[in-house]
Design a protein around this nucleic acid. Structure first.
Lengths: 233, 233
DNA sequence: AGGTATAATTAGGCTTACCTAATTTAGGAG
DNA sequence: CTCCTAAATTAGGTAAGCCTAATTATACCT
């Protein structure tokens, strides 16, 4: 039985790409708001439980079992985010925190019923993909805004979900999944990226632009295959 | 900030009528599945926090602050039970356990939005009243089945929510909020109470009958003021 | 190659919430 | 009124999960 703390660590490692490449103690310490020494202790514990491969001073990667558990949690988290925005009408900058608590209190049974109730959604309000009940994450081809060539118009697929202030800013300038934006130029000397949204031009700071993902789409047709639902009812 | 454990104790005390009269260490120990010594320790802690009035060897009562907190939790618990049965289609014998976990992961904000989404329900699937957001519990006049005079027909208002096996039995014989039952006779020597439900007669054991509550209602009209929703969709 | 800054680990403690075993209290029976 | 039993409390101990401080490893720079 994994505790809430253990679950938090597994999900944090997963979010830092720990299913693919080693994650440092330091980055986990920042992500979880915990002292580095505490991370080391927990990693040892998760290692003994077979959820993680930890090489001292070299970082940590999730085992298959650890990845499975992390994806289960990710599914619960994002399903709750969908429910909270779509049915309870919570603004998209508040649902991450709420879902973070609910994800640990959700049985498989409830998760599956919730997914069915929500019509098996493919993505949460921030556009992040929701794993299916077998842990399969649908792969969508998209790339970071900083990798888009200047002049190209793309459709926003995904924005970072954990920073409420950032989400309110993005909402204010109209950037959310489904929006069309045009990258206006190369990044400026100050590191910001000029983008056009509708008639307006905004500058996104580099860190933000790097964590917004978009897909190319036929410039001719205004609507692609399927449009993600809006974050507010 | 009250911990999950503290919350469990407060709600357990409340359920044992600890807002009205003293509750013993032993009954809490049974209710929570914890050693009596652990209860004493936690009561001391809750006492220091001003949530509880504890007189050693004499039992514990909730203070006003403790009652307020317990009722907040009760509201969350029962709101989730309504959601889980009405929208997710979970059977009524499973929702207590699920709601017990969710209640601790629910902010005021989510509780209020959930209540609005559910149309401010007055009772959970077991007929137990849901406090409003100010902590006011609607009072419904009803009495235990063992207090009903033989021959009288009453309408079931409330059944105990925590025992899945019992709930499945009640469901099988058609006893749930809204059902009309007739108390067929005085309790038998073996302690069971004969009741008629539709055409069938069943014997309820004393402990069960004592925890089922019913209201008198006009024998003429088949439907009272408002009928509680059924436990399954 | 050596020295040093940074990151990670070990060592030692604290708090929460539980346990078992020993002791104390309350309250009824004789 | 005293004794006895059941219930409750105190005493002492464990496991999780966090902390700070001290130590050790890595890797970069000259």
């Amino acid at each position: 039985m994994t505790s809430i703390s253990e679950q938090d660590y597994l999900l944090a490692i997963y979010r830092l790409r720990g299913a693919e490449s080693p994650v440092s103690t330091g980055s986990l310490s920042v992500q979880l708001g915990v002292a580095p020494a505490s991370v080391t202790g927990m990693l040892t514990k998760l290692h003994r439980a077979g959820l993680v491969e930890h090489t001292p001073y070299r970082g940590v990667v999730l085992t298959q079992a650890g990845t499975r558990e992390a994806v289960r949690l990710l599914r619960r988290h994002r399903l709750w985010e969908v429910f909270l925005t779509r049915f309870l009408g919570l603004p998209w900058d508040q649902v991450h925190e709420e879902a973070h608590r609910l994800e640990h209190a959700t049985s498989d049974r409830v998760a599956d019923h919730l997914a069915r109730f929500l019509s098996e959604p493919a993505a949460d309000p921030h556009g992040q993909a929701i794993p299916d009940r077998n842990g399969i994450l649908p792969h969508r081809p998209c790339r970071s805004l900083i990798d888009v060539e200047p002049g190209r118009t793309v459709r926003i697929q995904e924005v970072p979900d954990a920073d409420p202030a950032l989400l309110r800013r993005l909402d204010a300038i109209g950037i959310y999944p489904g929006t069309e934006v045009t990258v206006a130029a190369h990044p400026l000397p100050d590191g910001t990226l000029p983008v056009r949204v509708g008639q307006d031009e905004h500058h996104l700071d580099g860190a933000t632009a790097g964590r917004i993902y978009a897909s190319d789409h036929p410039p001719a047709g205004p609507s692609g295959s399927e449009t993600l639902e809006r974050n507010k009812p």
